[in-house]
């Protein structure tokens, strides 16, 4: 019969159309909210998703995974009396590895000796050029530069971030990337412990 194939196809469309409503009703009967809740959004991007699939940005936002990367930021630890202890030593590796070469670093020199001091005087990242590759964070030996999750950075100007604008506390980093943070802290502690043990052994 001519048209059978079309009808068969339409049955798929029809089913998918109704799925939205059956899902809605089943969520309602279970007393759960399908929209504007984390649970609902997660379900909509799981293997069981049925019916409506879209997430109504900006009212709803997809939950990004930990590894999600947008643009880089610099991490500082909060020292005593709120002093910002910048982790970056201005070693320059990130600016060398950056594929579009959008990181500019001014290294600090000690005014009396002229020798480099391990802290940057200034640090620029041209966010309009940054290709979000994540190399800087991957190859920084001091865990000083990390990739941010905040992607709403559209603006009327060009986005050249300087040191001030790049700095974010380690607390924030721990919040967006808890697993990475814990792993790195553990590694750091282990390293320090090993160092202390070595020093002790040398002293004894």
């Amino acid at each position: 019969m001519y048209g059978k194939g079309i009808l068969k196809g339409l049955s798929v469309t029809w089913k998918r159309f109704w799925d939205t409503y059956t899902e809605d009703i089943s969520w309602m009967l279970r007393g759960k909210k399908r929209y504007n809740t984390e649970e609902g959004i997660r379900h909509r991007s799981s293997k069981d998703t049925k019916g409506i699939f879209t997430v109504q940005y900006p009212e709803e936002q997809l939950i990004v995974p930990e590894e999600f990367r947008y643009v880089p930021f610099l991490v500082y630890d909060e020292g005593a009396d709120g002093k910002k202890e910048i982790r970056c030593t201005s070693c320059g590796i990130c600016s060398k590895v950056c594929p579009p070469q959008c990181i500019w670093i001014v290294r600090t020199n000690d005014p009396s000796t002229g020798r480099p001091v391990p802290v940057p005087t200034n640090f620029y990242v041209d966010m309009d050029i940054c290709m979000n590759c994540g190399f800087c964070a991957e190859y920084c030996p001091f865990d000083a530069i990390k990739m941010d999750h905040d992607f709403d950075i559209a603006s009327y100007d060009r986005n050249v971030y300087n040191l001030d604008k790049l700095l974010k506390p380690a607390k924030y980093y721990a919040e967006i990337r808890p697993e990475n943070y814990t792993r790195e802290e553990e590694a750091r502690k282990a390293k320090e412990a090993a160092k202390a043990a070595k020093a002790e052994a040398a002293a004894a």
Partner: peptide, 12 residues
């Protein structure tokens, strides 16, 4: 690459 103008005196 890497360009010399980026580090150690990388004025944007």
């Amino acid at each position: 690459k890497p360009f010399k103008s980026r580090w150690p005196d990388g004025q944007h």
